[in-house]
Design a protein around this nucleic acid. Structure first.
Length: 480
RNA sequence: GCCGAGGUGGCAGAAUGGUUAAUGCGACGGACUGCAGAUCCGUUUCCUGGGGGUUCGAUUCCCUCCCUCGGCUCCA
């Protein structure tokens, strides 16, 4: 296992990562409330933690990655009522859309997506325990609140002092609370809502406790790594700590806290409730998963980024094209001729450089997941390969594979340069070269009208032709 | 008001107590091309929000101020 450092938001310091039971790592990331389609901001958070899980796994850690789904809450209920739909069905539908986007983005490292409503028994058990131990109280209507004053460490994560809070700054103060900082862990049901029986009458889970009930069940009282968007730091993560540590009597609930920076939409936070969102699915449609992942990972995961429509992803697309060009060329040759292809052996110097680079990439990323610096190293490699492209075309299969090793590294850890195998197979691989050969003959005899006609027809069929010194190359227009 | 995260070239965005502060985008010049596109090469060098301090030396450590964004009890 490689030495990994992580910036821990609790201690506000970069610490050496030491899981409790190596090589096992329990990773919990706050997922989303699927009451509307996911936006570009959500994509960033989940691509970032996908990278974290991928990298840790590469380095020998056995990561169990859990990401919850809040499939029942006030917003879902309100939205469902507005659309005359069932809240659970609405959540199911939007979650399916979210999963599809994640799949397309290559964010496949989550082992388990628990649904809140599947953990009602665990939630009720935890609520009961908190009431019995005096940490929570029951209001007249049957709602149960956690009493923040009973938990001395409250505020440790966010630095917030209870007395300095400004009640009602954004959310209405609930009159059933004893103190404004208390938060609901079990909500008495209103007629028509999904509800479960409880010792305090029918109700449904509060938000914060859903996570601690899940992690308590799946990881126990303490686990290694907790992630989420920076906006969840307070109150949500603070509440999780209070709930879990009060319920179990064991602290700390989690050893390392990671918070990912938010995506702003031209200066203001992208948020479903504000409405200034840019659809994730649409972005994937327009630019492809690789461009989007490059955009996300091309900055420190902690820093805020500004999403400028018409600019951010366009720039990432240019960069991605340049970065992936040599890898694409190598992959094309290997797909065409196979890994045993005959050719020149790779010069020792390049072989060693590739090996050294992969090691540097690991070291760089292991430094608090510095994906931006790793990408800078990859650009250096892309430039080096571009300079010797004619030489590359003559290499044997082993040499090509060795040269592509840094790209394979990036695919494994960053999820970049994923190729859809066989994209150019089938009839295209036969027909296009025949047409290009005909076009080459036309050009040789100076019949440019015929040459351009063939190029136009190919373009109409979605094939881009590029003339170079060594003949004409082609690719599908949508593969860029 | 309080808490948190940020402030680096035209733009995006890294890094380090010490040679020219990465990398990308853009722009400009060149190569290649029948043309176009794509690609490749080169150029574009800001001394790091303001002020103070520590140090032989700070963008980096400390203090202070300013600005932006986020949070202040169900936002990734």
């Amino acid at each position: 296992m490689r030495r990994v450092t992580i910036y821990d938001s609790m201690s506000r310091a970069t610490r050496i990562f030491a899981p409790m039971q190596p090589p096992r790592v329990g990773l919990y990331v706050c997922g989303l409330t699927p009451y509307a389609p996911a936006h570009v901001g959500h994509g960033r958070t989940f691509v970032i933690f996908d990278m974290v899980a991928r990298a840790l796994r590469r380095w020998g850690y056995r990561v169990f990655y859990v990401q919850n789904v809040t499939n029942l809450d006030d917003k879902l209920i309100a939205r469902a009522a507005a659309e005359n739909d069932d809240p659970l069905a609405l959540a199911e539908r939007h979650f399916a859309g979210f999963l599809r986007s994640m799949e397309r983005l290559g964010a496949r490292s989550v082992n388990y997506y628990p649904f809140a409503t599947d953990y009602v028994p665990e939630i009720l058990e935890q609520v009961k325990g908190l009431v019995d131990r005096g940490y929570a109280y029951v209001a007249d209507d049957g709602s149960v609140y956690f009493e923040v004053a009973k938990f001395a460490r409250y505020g440790a994560l966010s630095g917030q002092k209870v007395e300095a809070l400004k009640p009602g700054a954004r959310v209405e103060v609930d009159p059933r609370k004893r103190a404004p900082e208390d938060f609901v862990i079990w909500k008495a049901a209103t007629p028509g809502e999904p509800s479960w029986e409880s010792p305090w009458g029918p109700g449904r889970p509060g938000w914060h406790i859903e996570d601690t009930a899940m992690t308590g069940r799946l990881f126990g009282a303490k686990y290694d790594l907790h992630g989420g968007g920076l906006d969840l730091n307070f109150p949500h993560h603070e509440a999780e700590i209070a709930l879990s540590e009060s319920a179990t009597g064991l602290a700390p609930m989690v050893e390392y806290w990671m918070h990912s920076g938010l995506v702003a939409m031209t200066g203001e936070k992208m948020s479903k409730s504000i409405g200034n969102v840019s659809s994730l699915e649409q972005a994937i449609d327009d630019f492809g998963p690789g461009v989007l992942r490059l955009y996300y990972l091309n900055a420190s995961y902690r820093s805020p980024v500004d999403f400028v429509p018409g600019k951010s992803l366009e720039e990432a697309r240019e960069a991605y094209g340049r970065l992936s060009a040599p890898a694409d060329r190598i992959a094309e040759i290997l797909e065409r001729d196979g890994p045993d292809r005959a050719g020149d052996p790779l010069p020792k110097e390049l072989e060693e450089a590739a090996e050294r680079l992969v090691d540097d990439l690991d070291t760089t990323l292991a430094n608090d997941f510095n994906s931006r610096e790793a990408i800078a190293l990859l650009f250096g490699w892309a430039r080096r390969l571009a300079e010797i492209l004619p030489q590359i075309e003559r290499l044997d299969g082993a040499g090509l594979t060795a040269l592509a090793a840094p790209y394979a590294w990036a695919t494994e850890t960053l999820g970049l340069f994923e190729r859809t195998p066989g994209a150019r197979s089938g009839g295209w691989a036969t027909v296009v070269p025949l047409l290009l050969a005909a076009r080459a003959r036309a050009r040789a005899r100076g019949d440019y009208a015929e040459s351009d006609r063939i190029r136009d027809e190919l373009r109409a069929a979605g094939v881009e032709v590029e003339d170079g010194a060594d003949g004409s190359a082609w690719q599908f227009a949508d593969a860029k």
